[in-house]
């Protein structure tokens, strides 16, 4: 009995350590639950490359407070959105727009009422968004970083969420 108890205890300790390890892995964000990298992609012909102001410019263009890219050709911006509630939209709201869903909805209502401008068109998949962005010189949108390597587009900046 004296010799068996330590083994049982040791088994319990090992099991506890394994459980704690798994929990820590989940909490710290392993491959499945950790931050995901996203990329804001633009048309490959877009000459805008100011990293310092990129996030703010994208925010202004997406919200339609600004209409032209500050690049050589002054391309008219054509933002593309992602489905409401999608991981891409949540990440873009939190890290680039700095707004909540409700704040964004109020912004669009105000803009619609005052100017008739409507929110950007929503695109369902990364690949389709990349195709749209490749089609329009002023096109841009957010995709998962591993989907950013497509023909006719390039990465303006990346962020994690």
């Amino acid at each position: 009995m004296i010799f068996h108890m330590p083994k049982q205890l040791m088994g319990l300790v090992i099991a506890a350590v394994i459980c704690l390890g798994l929990m820590a892995e989940m909490a710290s964000g392993g491959d499945d639950g950790g931050p995901v990298e996203y990329a804001v992609i633009v048309n490959a012909s877009n000459s805008f490359a100011d990293e310092a102001s990129a996030s703010n410019v994208v925010k202004q263009l997406f919200l339609k407070d600004r209409e032209d890219w500050p690049n050589k050709n002054k391309d008219q911006a054509k933002p593309f959105g992602r489905a409401a509630g999608s991981p891409e939209t949540k990440a873009f709201l939190a890290k680039v727009l700095g707004m909540t869903d409700a704040e964004l909805a109020k912004h669009w209502i105000a803009l619609k009422q005052k100017t008739g401008k409507t929110p950007p068109r929503e695109v369902a998949s990364d690949k389709m968004l990349a195709r749209f962005v490749a089609k329009f010189p002023g096109g841009f949108g957010v995709v998962k970083a591993d989907a950013a390597q497509a023909d006719g587009v390039k990465v303006l900046f990346t962020f994690k969420h």
């Binding site: 100011d50 310092a52 102001s53 703010n56 410019v57 202004q60 407070d65 600004r66 500050p70």
Partner: peptide
């Protein structure tokens, strides 16, 4: 019209 001023064009 609008002009975007300051570093990063944050001031409008």
């Amino acid at each position: 019209g609008k002009f975007f001023l300051g570093e990063g064009g944050e001031d409008v």
